[in-house]
Design a protein around this nucleic acid. Structure first.
Length: 878
RNA sequence: GCCGAUGUGGCGAAAUGGCAGACGCAACGGACUUAAAAUCCGUUGGGCCUAACGGCCCGUGCCGGUUCGAGUCCGGCCAUCGGCACCA
């Protein structure tokens, strides 16, 4: 039973072809200036999200996206593109470090072993990666440039006039450190005691660490931050032009969280000082009858009166002790303390009490809000809890002023002398003008996005190329890169928040007076720019060579050349003349990575960070285009056979190698694509793999037969013969469908069509060799091994990977007769065959004459006739 | 709570507003075989009428609308999944 007979000898031919591809460097893409580079070809950059090489190895989810990109890569090569299709390893990260802590084995060793395992698996699937471009984020030759890019960021500031990053040398202020894009700040951070490190906001989910699910607490610490907030506007705006799923754009937009409003000054009573609040509803300012500061607000100490001091201090302590989890979990009940001071509402000069409450966050806006209980849910809740007045200032459509309380949408201003009677949008406008004239307020746009907390207290990451001297930081010289981490025996976190690198006393010591930074960069650092390094992975002088960057990441704006090169190249099996395949976004390259496929889990983190780095490097003049990833597609998750997420816990994990062992790599690839639409979530089915495997076996037996000795040889049915009309037609229909479907990434239906093709030829007495060759090229991107072997068996010229994609001839697809559907009142009554060129009158006459139609009409009168040429006739009767 | 995606046979799924269920899985029947596997041929959404040929009705989460015609477009709901969540 174990020795089950293979449906075709994939176990021999798959390793054979993989060895040939390796040996001939079949998928190596030369760079401009290198031997064999053809400048006449347009480029296509198709990228996978490179994996973290975990100990568990690849599971069937990884190769889903990888197979899709491999099909596109192979297809594009056949269409005459220079294709960049690389793979590498995002290898810094916690698991290797955790493993090191447990076993004492250096993360480098684990990482190397895991990479070897991943690579073997990927190679076994037959992906056409250019392995000469393989990169590894933990390789000093790679992270040298990660550190170098950090220094570019460190040595830049964001000029808000030009809205661009510029070298720090152009900054005219007196404290450059206060504007650098990389800076140090004592900030409340997400500290995870279990992991012994701080985490980015993005890495904390419901108050727990994304990795491991350990509790996270707030605590102030000195940390490296990247000023991503400077780019909030561009990161949001420049999303528009990208060919990304709308859902992902929305997720990023929500994360960036732009809101347009006003900053308003509230004078503090009996003090020559004021507090700024940010609001999006300045039209409701007449309803502001109290003010709330975040408990951490710097003015709290000064403002709190003697008698309120003890209460305020106690409250602030309580809040500080709360973990994020508690702060959100207990959010149902509002808390707060009056601090004894008053502010003056600028529109009516009313004295309003100042409170502190933890529902106001220090990190957003100004850390102070005007409390408008009438028209803000949170303020209303707070006011009710503490018995503050609730005044309606916006009347909702169709409601009384009283009923309008708690109504948050637009309405008409009331109880607001300056703007009474104005609908919300003009009320906002007028109020803002009024405030601006008096210097009390100004328009303001705020973003939810926070600066990126960029340091980690870990061992297995890039050390910062920074030294400290007399409390000041400065950059290492470029010539001192890469800065390698010290050799450590003990990787354990110190538990105090001090990074493990602090244990390497010799390493830390930079000079008599200077010490090294001991934090490391987060795992995201390496993946922020790997797609750039792929363009020129062995360059030791530059993070990416200029020419290589311009070619692979630049725009291919030579439209004429693209059209010409994309114009159908003839395959020998094809009949002259062919017609356009509709344009799709896979055609012309607007620049950057032309197609990027990966999981949704990276929708905000990786994709936002990478875009940020890219923009900084673009501003500094290193890159051709402001956006890295022109087109993004998310593949859906593959579930276990039981419809649950694959996990050890359910025992439903599928190992690709096990599948390949039984059915072969080609069947594995085809099945992954045949399961359903790429973007969709779908369950695995071994039976499904078997079905696809049967299809490939039928392809094989279409051309091969087994002789007496049990050896496969070319079938005698395969002849250099003229295809029949029907064969001709199905061949061209298949070219058309497969081509369009690949362009649309609809691989499942492309495979269906190829199955239809094979079914049509099954049992044919004569199998025309030309039709077979055409078909093999179509199937090649999906099933590269079997098609390479059959191509050779057919004694075809050259390698299949060097062929041109076949063209189809539309005229061969046109029938001279068509089936016409006859409907009565929209219901199908019969189907008849009519000549293609039948006129509307002829079709109508045929319909009226049809017996079934007449039965259905009965004694009714025909009121209307709808004729759709070549399709149907609908008689409307009553 | 807010935002988004999805909902079609026993299952995975197809269908530029025009024949719902292509293709595949599973199931059933047949051929080949001593037998099985493999392979090939056929049937297969549900219900009803007919001895049969054949015919009729219903059917794309639910309710309504637009249209000669709706899985597809519009409005309202329900369910499942995913994201965000005191962001002023």
């Amino acid at each position: 039973m174990n020795e089950r007979r293979k449906p075709y000898p994939f176990d021999r031919l798959e390793p054979k072809w993989q060895a040939i591809w390796d040996g001939t460097r079949a998928f190596h893409a030369p760079n401009p200036g290198e031997p064999n580079f053809d400048p006449g070809k347009p480029k296509f950059y198709v990228l996978d999200m490179f994996p973290y090489p975990s100990g568990a190895g690849l599971h069937v989810g990884h190769p889903e996206g990888y197979t899709a990109t491999d099909i596109i890569a192979r297809y594009k090569r056949l269409r005459g593109f220079n294709v960049l299709h690389p793979m590498g390893w995002d290898a810094f990260g916690l698991p290797a470090e955790q493993y090191a802590i447990k076993t004492g084995q250096h993360p480098e060793i684990t990482t190397r072993a895991n990479i070897a395992k991943f690579k073997t698996q990927l190679k076994r699937i037959g992906f056409s990666y250019d392995w000469e471009r393989e990169i590894n984020t933990t390789d000093p030759a790679y992270y040298k440039w990660t550190q170098w890019i950090f220094l570019q960021i460190y040595n830049s500031w964001f000029n808000s006039e030009t809205k661009k990053a510029e070298p720090i040398s152009t900054y005219r202020g007196d404290d450059p450190d206060s504007v650098r894009l990389a800076y140090v700040a004592e900030v409340p951070v997400n500290w995870c005691p279990e992991l012994g490190t701080v985490l980015a906001n993005e890495e904390v989910i419901d108050g727990k660490s994304e990795v491991g699910g350990f509790p996270v607490v707030r605590r102030p610490m000195r940390q490296w931050m990247l000023r991503i907030t400077a780019y909030a506007e561009r990161l949001a705006d420049e999303l528009e032009a990208l060919d990304w799923p709308e859902g992902i754009k929305l997720l990023q937009r929500n994360w960036i969280g732009r809101s347009e409003g006003a900053e308003i000054e509230f004078k503090i009573d009996e003090r020559n000082d004021s507090i700024r609040v940010f609001t999006t509803r300045h039209d409701t300012i007449y309803g502001a009858n109290y003010m709330v500061l975040a408990p951490e607000h710097p003015l709290v100490d000064q403002l709190t009166t003697e008698d309120r001091h003890a209460d305020a201090a106690k409250y602030r302590e309580q809040v500080a002790a709360k973990s994020d989890l508690e702060r959100t979990d207990l959010a149902k009940e509002k808390t707060g303390v009056f601090i004894g001071a008053y502010a003056i509402n600028p529109v009516n000069q009313e004295k309003i009490p100042i409170w502190i409450a933890d529902y106001v966050l220090m990190g957003y806006g100004t850390g102070a809000v005007m409390g408008v209980p009438g028209h803000d849910e949170r303020d209303l809740e707070f006011a009710r809890k503490f018995n503050l007045a609730v005044l309606p200032v916006v009347q909702a459509p169709g409601k009384t002023p009283e009923e309008s309380i708690g109504f948050l949408e637009d309405g008409v201003a009331i109880n607001s002398p300056i703007i009474d009677g104005l609908p919300t949008p003009s009320a906002k406008k007028k109020m803002l003008e009024w405030l601006e004239e008096r210097g009390l307020g100004r328009p303001n746009i705020r973003y939810k996005l926070r600066d990126w907390l960029f340091s980690r207290q870990r061992y297995w990451g890039e050390p910062f190329p920074i030294v400290w001297e007399g409390g000041k930081h400065s950059a290492l010289n470029e010539s001192e890169l890469p800065l390698e981490p010290p050799a450590l025996e003990d990787f354990k976190p110190t538990g105090t928040g001090e990074p493990p690198l602090a244990k390497a006393k010799d390493w830390i010591r930079y000079s008599e007076t200077a010490t090294r930074e001991t934090n490391t960069m987060p795992q995201w650092a390496g993946s922020c720019w790997y797609y750039l390094r792929f363009c020129d992975p062995r360059n030791s002088d530059r993070f990416v060579g200029e020419a290589a960057e311009r070619y692979w990441m630049g725009a291919d704006n030579d439209e004429a050349r693209i059209t010409k090169d994309e114009g159908m190249t003839k395959h020998e099996a094809d009949v002259p003349s062919s017609f356009g395949i509709r344009h799709s976004s896979l055609r012309a390259s607007p620049g950057g990575v032309d197609l990027y496929i990966g999981g949704v889990e990276h929708a905000v983190l990786h994709l936002l960070y990478a875009r940020f780095w890219h923009k900084v490097l673009f501003d500094l003049g290193y890159l051709s285009k402001p956006e890295p990833f022109q087109r993004l597609v998310n593949q859906g998750m593959i579930l276990g056979e039981d419809n649950r997420k694959m996990s050890k816990r359910w025992g439903n994990v599928i190992d690709p190698l096990d599948v390949i062992e039984i059915y072969g790599a080609d069947a594995f690839r085809c099945y992954e694509m045949f399961m359903g639409p790429l973007e969709q979530m779908k369950p695995w089915s071994m039976k499904g793999v078997e079905g696809v495997s049967r299809f490939l076996a039928r392809v094989w037996r279409l051309m091969m037969t087994e002789n007496q000795a049990g050896e496969w040889e070319l079938s005698t049915a395969v002849q250099d013969a003229e295809p029949t009309k029907a064969q001709q037609k199905i061949t061209h229909a298949t070219i058309k469908k497969v081509t369009n479907d690949i362009e649309a990434l609809a691989f499942n239906t492309a495979i269906s069509q190829m199955m239809i093709f094979v079914n049509a030829f099954t049992n044919a007495e004569l199998v025309p060799v030309a039709a077979m060759r055409t078909f093999l090229v179509l199937l090649n991107p999906f099933a590269p091994h079997i098609t390479s072997e059959l191509w050779q068996q057919l004694r075809s010229r050259g390698e299949i990977t060097e062929q041109s994609w076949p063209a189809y001839n539309e005229t061969l697809l046109v029938e001279d007769e068509v089936e016409i559907v006859l409907q009565v009142n929209g219901k199908v009554r019969d189907r008849i065959t009519m000549p293609l060129d039948s006129t509307g009158e002829q079709l109508e006459a045929a319909a009226r004459a049809n017996e079934k139609v007449r039965n259905a009409v009965g004694s009714q009168t025909i009121r209307k006739v709808v004729v759709v040429p070549k399709k149907l006739v609908n008689l409307v009767a009553a």
